[in-house]
Write a protein that binds this DNA or RNA. Structure first.
Lengths: 117, 117
DNA sequence: TTAACTTATGAATTGTTATTCATATGATAA
DNA sequence: TTATCATATGAATAACAATTCATAAGTTAA
């Protein structure tokens, strides 16, 4: 029974850590919302496309194979959560990944996909 | 106009990359589903708690402050997507993060939260 | 084997979110 | 200034997912 006593102590320590390090509701909700923004197939597709470099809406629409309106809505969601950013170039609006953290997440996700575990 | 020609060429290259590297529907959907599993506030809370170390259901329930049934449903979702794993120890079932990739994602997410960009 | 404890599950309800269609806005060139 | 092209948006519908409640199932100890 030594083992289970040791285990119990460990779990109490994990509990303490969990309770202490838990972010506040607002931070947690924002973090979750950002994950959720990434987690729709159509939006993830957009992000995978953008991980190759910036693209305008029309090209994105082709790359993900949707219709223009749907893609625009999806872009808005991603932009609202600061997952992507955009700049205007004449008639076109050109989108790109907002920052390195996002790119890291997409990369980790791709890896995960490849090694399939 | 030299600039915009150069830009156009770059975008064509991005397009080519995007189209070539796009995973198939099934892979994409699974990847998205895994992100989605992470992206609900209650489930993210569970993962943040588990990033401190393994915990049994009762402790998890306390740590995230829900009711037992809800937490069990959430755990099932996470387990179905191989985000977490579990082992039985007597009456209890003890959950932990499934692998290093997930832990990396959670860590990147936490960082993101802290530097607030 | 019964009682107590811990975790899991099915069904129903409620709440969310994506997509579509129609149209608006913004930018350029004729 | 109008016509055209590129993108954005509001409203409605339709698809999906979370939570709750009641209860089942697995495990241990008496």
């Amino acid at each position: 029974m030594q083992d289970s006593i040791k285990e119990k102590t460990e779990h109490e320590e994990h509990m303490r850590c969990a309770l202490e390090s838990m972010p506040c509701e607002d931070d947690l909700n924002e973090l979750a919302a950002r994950f959720k923004a990434i987690s729709e197939p159509s939006r993830l597709k957009i992000l995978l496309a953008l991980s190759c470099g910036e693209l305008c809406v029309e090209h994105l629409t082709q790359a993900v194979g949707g219709n223009q309106s749907a893609v625009s809505h999806q872009l808005k969601t991603l932009k609202d959560h600061r997952i992507i950013k955009c700049r205007r170039a004449g008639k076109q609006v050109i989108y790109s990944i907002a920052d390195g953290h996002i790119l890291t997440m997409i990369s980790v996700a791709k890896e995960h996909l490849n090694c399939n575990d």
